[in-house]
Amino acid sequence: MHRPFRLALAALSLTLVGLAAPGTAAAQSALDFGGTYTADVLSALDGSPDRGTDLVGRADAWVDFKGPAAGLDSLAAHLDLIAVHGPDFSGRRIGVYQTISSLEADTLPHVYEAWAQWKPSALVSAKAGLIDLNAEFDIQNTGALFVNSAFGIGPDISQSGLAGPSIFPMTAAALVVRVQHGRKALGLGVFDALAGARHDPRKAALRFPGTTGALLIAEARVPVGTWLLQLGGWHYTTRFDALDPARPPALSRGVYAMLEGAVTRKVSAWVRIGGADARANPIAAYLGGGAVATLGEWRLGLAAAHARLGHAGRTVLAAPDRAHRAETVLELTAQRPVASWLNIQPDLQYVIHPGWAPGAPDTLVAGLRFSFAIPDS
C-alpha cells in the first residue's frame, strides 16, 4: 500500500476515533461496525471444457460514522476493508466474458472504500474519497439478487478502462455530487481513470481524481409513474489504444438507460440497455433485464444478459468469419433466509456462445451462494 494512502487512511481512522472519543452514549452510537462474508460454490456442468467445482468468496469489514449522533448533522463517513479468495472459475472453466459470480476477482486484501460525505441539506450532497462507482451510478436494485456480475453493473461500463473502472474489486479516488428532490435526482462523478496502483492493479492506491486521467459520469433519475428511469453517460478524458492496432488511439465512452419498478405487489422487474464506443471496447451494445417475485420467505428471480461485440472486437478478438456476435447468459435463482444472519441461494446459469468463441459449447453452471452478516439485519 502506498505511503500517502496509508497516511490518508490513518487520518480518517483517527478522525473517526476522535469524534467518538468522549465516551458518551451519543458519541459511542456515532460508530457502527459490521462484517459480511459471501461465498459461491460453483459447478461447471454440461458443455464446459473443464468440468469441476470451485469456491469463491468475499469478506468485508466496515465501520460507518454517523455525524448526527455526534452533533455533526451534515457529515458521514465510511470505511470498508475487503479480502477475496478463489480461482478464475469463469475464465478457466467456461471462457465466459460476463463473469459467472460477482465475487470473482484477482486482488489482494485492501481498503475498498474510504470516503466522507457532506450533506448540508436534503437537496444536495457531496462525497469524496475511494468510492465504488456502482454504489452511486447504474444501480440495479432488483438485479442485485442475481449472482452473475452483469446484473450488478452493465458490462458496457465494467469493461472500460485499463483495469476496469472504480468498481469491485478495486476503487479509485473520486468526487461525487448529487442533487435530489423526492425521486428525481441528478448525479455527477469525477473518478480517477485508473483503479488501483499503477505498478499492480491488485493493490489499492489513493490519488487525486484525474491524476491518471479522469472518468466522468452523469446520471439522471426520473420517475415514470411508479417506476424509475435512469439515464446515464460516461466518458474518459484520455484516449486508449484502439482494439484494431492499425487505428489511432480512441476515446472510451458510452451511454445507458434503465427502467425499474413494481409489476405487482410481489413482483418487481427491470430492463437495461447500454452502448460503448466499439473502437476501444469489445462490447458495443448490451441488453439485460429480468424479474424477481417474493413467495413467502423465498425471492425467486429470472434474468437475461445479452452482450454484443462491436466490429473491432469481432475482427481483432475473434475470427470475424466464424465468431458469434453475442454472448447471452440466462440465470434462474432463489434466495431465502435460514437465520437472521444467514441467507442461502441456489442458482442456475446457462451460457450461450461463451466468450463469443466459434465452436465453444453452450454451458450449464449450478451454484449455491451463502451470505453471512454481522450484525444480522
Score class of each variant (00 low, 15 high):
F65G: 11
V255H: 05
T315A: 15
R93S: 07
I82V: 15
T99H: 00
F146N: 09
P375C: 07
T328F: 01
A305N: 14
I157G: 02
A339P: 02
T38C: 05
G182T: 08
W118P: 01
A218M: 04
V177E: 13
G288V: 09
A128C: 06
A339M: 05
A185P: 11
G71V: 01
V224L: 15
V111A: 13
P4L: 12
Y112R: 11
L216R: 07
E260A: 09
N141A: 13
R247H: 10
A122T: 14
A144V: 08
R253P: 00
T212E: 13
D106L: 10
A293E: 11
A220S: 10
G274R: 07
A144H: 11
A11S: 12
A262N: 13
L243G: 10
L108V: 14
A20W: 01
V179W: 12
I100H: 03
L194D: 08
M1N: 08
D106N: 14
A197Y: 06
S90F: 01
R279T: 14
I100V: 15
L259C: 01
A291D: 04
N134P: 00
L215K: 08
A285G: 11
D32K: 15
M170V: 14
E219T: 09
F168M: 09
H306M: 03
G95A: 02
A291P: 03
T237E: 02
R221L: 12
A284D: 14
A205R: 10
G210S: 04
I374Q: 12
V111L: 14
P282C: 11
N148I: 02
G289E: 05
P248I: 10
E219Y: 10
W115S: 00
D362I: 05
V222C: 03
N148M: 03
L130S: 11
I139F: 08
R207H: 12
R247F: 05
Y286L: 12
P68R: 13
I153G: 10
I352R: 10
L302E: 04
A76T: 07
L348I: 13
A360E: 05
T238Y: 00
G310D: 08
A163H: 15
A77C: 07
R198A: 15
L123I: 13
T53Y: 03
G254F: 06
K127P: 00
A150I: 12
G313T: 06
G67H: 06
L309N: 12
G23Q: 08
G275F: 06
D64A: 14
R253C: 01
P201E: 02
R239E: 05
F372P: 00
F208G: 03
V41N: 02
R314A: 13
I273Y: 12
W234H: 10
Q345V: 00
L215G: 06
L145K: 00
A114Y: 03
P375I: 12
E260R: 14
G296M: 00
A257H: 06
S121T: 15
A278V: 06
Q345E: 03
P169N: 08
Q117I: 03
H311W: 06
D192R: 12
A128V: 15
F65H: 12
L216H: 05
W115M: 00
P320W: 06
E260S: 11
A61M: 12
Y286S: 13
R336K: 14
W115L: 01
L206C: 07
L42E: 02
P109F: 09
H199Y: 13
D46V: 11
R325C: 00
P346V: 01
I139T: 14
A285K: 08
D200C: 05
Y256G: 04
S13M: 13
L300E: 00
N281V: 14
I283Y: 11
